[in-house]
Design a protein around this nucleic acid. Structure first.
Length: 275
DNA sequence: ACCCGTGTTCGCTG
DNA sequence: TCAGCGAACACGGG
């Protein structure tokens, strides 16, 4: 369930699990070719096997692995898409359902990339030259790593006529912000998600910047644990407004939360608190 | 059967 | 060139 917070947890897990480990064998499901584009499952297997995991970095929703082999570094760019997840299993345990790729480590564990819906991506980056990858060039500064500069955010929003909730999901503006965080951030900031981005004043932009960081920190705090545990089946919805259409607003406790569709995605908001 | 979904990309339009 | 829009991608779950 990957937005910034989930990917950050994934990065922390992967560092704890894999840093310094040698990948004795990499495997990929031939049937999951879609995940490895551009590239093939075969190439994935052949190139990664034998490398050591040197670092795992996160920018927005992207995971940047740097692997070290005999003939220099190799990058692995991983995106979880809608349903991607990294899991760790002991050697010999059955692979998780929908496992698309596996990294057998030299400590008796196997890292599985599980992705039922196949919107995830695993992409090799020769020489780990991530600076040459187009999707990464287009990303803005990571909110968690660099903070959010209200002046920069204001300037970016000023150019947009799109609704503010849609604009803040632009990965060139706030990488890592997805559909949930966007709704949550607008709610926390008391800003109507339908407002054209360019109509926000300086005070509102500053409040929005702060709200995004708070929503991210809250989400990370909730999820820390051995694995990504997140709105697991039967778990309680941890969000303030997301997926709470019809429920009473947790702030004003008077209006009922509403749902609307923006840019083909659901938005949740309080019609009374968000101006 | 139908609708929904935590994401990105591509093609088209103004 | 850029902003905006809708479709497409693939598939499980309610």
């Amino acid at each position: 369930m990957p937005e910034l917070a989930e990917v950050e947890i994934a990065a922390r897990n992967l560092r704890a699990w894999a840093l310094g480990r040698r990948i004795e064998r990499a495997e990929a499901e031939p049937s999951a070719a879609y995940v490895f584009r551009p590239g093939t499952p075969k190439r994935f297997t052949a190139q990664i096997t034998g490398h050591r995991v040197e670092s795992v970095r996160r920018i927005g929703k992207q995971l940047l692995w740097t692997l070290r082999g005999d003939d220099g570094p190799l990058g692995l760019l991983a995106h979880l898409g809608m349903t991607g997840k990294w899991l760790r299993r002991e050697k010999g345990q059955p692979a998780p359902e929908y496992g698309k790729a596996r990294l057998h480590l030299d400590d008796g564990h196997v890292l599985h990339f599980r992705d039922p819906r196949l919107f995830g991506r695993l992409r090799l980056v020769p020489g780990a030259r991530f600076e040459e990858v187009d999707e990464l060039k287009e990303l803005g500064p990571d909110p968690l790593e660099a903070g959010i500069d209200p002046a920069r955010l204001g300037a970016a929003l000023a150019r947009r006529r799109a609704p503010v909730k849609v604009a803040i999901m632009d990965q060139g503006i706030l990488p890592g912000v997805g559909n949930i965080l966007a709704s949550e951030s607008c709610f926390r900031a008391g800003i109507d998600p339908r407002r054209p981005a360019a109509t926000l004043g300086g005070v509102e932009v500053a409040r929005l910047a702060q709200s995004v960081l708070e929503a991210v920190h809250d989400a990370i705090t909730r999820q820390e644990g051995p694995e990504i545990a997140y709105v697991e089946e039967g778990g309680e919805n941890p969000f303030l407004v997301y997926a709470r259409e019809g429920e009473r607003c947790p702030r004003c406790k008077r209006a009922d939360l509403r749902r609307l569709v923006q840019a083909q995605r659901s938005t949740f908001y309080c019609p009374r608190c968000q101006k």
